[in-house]
Amino acid sequence: MSDVPQKLPRDSFIDEIYAEAIRNDRVYFMSADLGAKALDRFRKDCPGRFIHAGICEQNMVDVAAGLAQCGKLVYLYAMAPYVTLRCYEQIKVALGHMELPATLIGNGIGFSYTDAGPTHYATEDISCMRALCGCEVISCSDDTSVIETARLTYREPALRYVRLDRKFLPQVYAAGDTRFLTDGIVLTDEGEDACIVTNGYMLHKAREARVNLAKQGRRIALVDVYRIKPLDPKVVRRVLEPFSRIVTLEEHYLAGGIGSAVLEAMADASLSRPVLRLGIQDRYFCENGGRDYILGLSGLDVPTITSNVAKFLS
């Protein structure tokens, strides 16, 4: 596929941070023993500002808080479950309460650590992280949004959790298209009959379902939920109001995920629509078979998404 970017999301992100680190000696990058091709260059050229925290996420967050208090721009990098739930209370107390800017980079969201099992899957991180006072939650659906997010983190420092897929994701936004930064929630594909509100890997699955539905005469719009928190109810209303039916689709448990976030914003904006929420089943997944197979166990494979949306519309 020609639109597949050349780099993994984490490499695109870290390359931007590297460029800033060369310009700005306040940039510090901490890792709880997770590497990346792009990180090798950072470690070589900025050795004093790459900090191995040990496989000690709690220590990583508390030390980052101290560095941030001393004016450093700190990035904390680990697999998504470990940079969030493993050190959740540290994030609340040391970063959240003290209102310190830091970027938590969660690599490998959803089931993207294929076949690794529940320890490595990040399928409740959205609900946990959006519950933390003062923490922005961002999920990147393509390379453009990854790059622009990295630039945002040093241009406008804040406490942010950035969700990165482990795998290449095809293009959604043309270079320079930064509507997601201002609006947070963006119409990416036109349609009139209904819209699917989703993000990340599932946005690309929704695109396949959209093609199938078009063959059935259904014109389906797609909406990318880039910034899950905060979501501006006024923008949510503007983007979703044209649609008589709404589907939310996520590689995440339904409790507190993007479906919840969007429904809350709709309620706040007094926007009432029939909604179908699609997410992963409320159980842990240990089965082999790969990401799409695991998604299929919750009815999140393209044929089942297609048929469920068609049923919802009929």
Binding site: I51, Q58, N59, V61, D62, V63, A64, A65, G66, L67, A68, Q69, C70, Q90, A94
Partner: peptide, 8 residues
Amino acid sequence: GIAAGHAL
């Protein structure tokens, strides 16, 4: 941990 950040 926070103290270690300051010391670092």
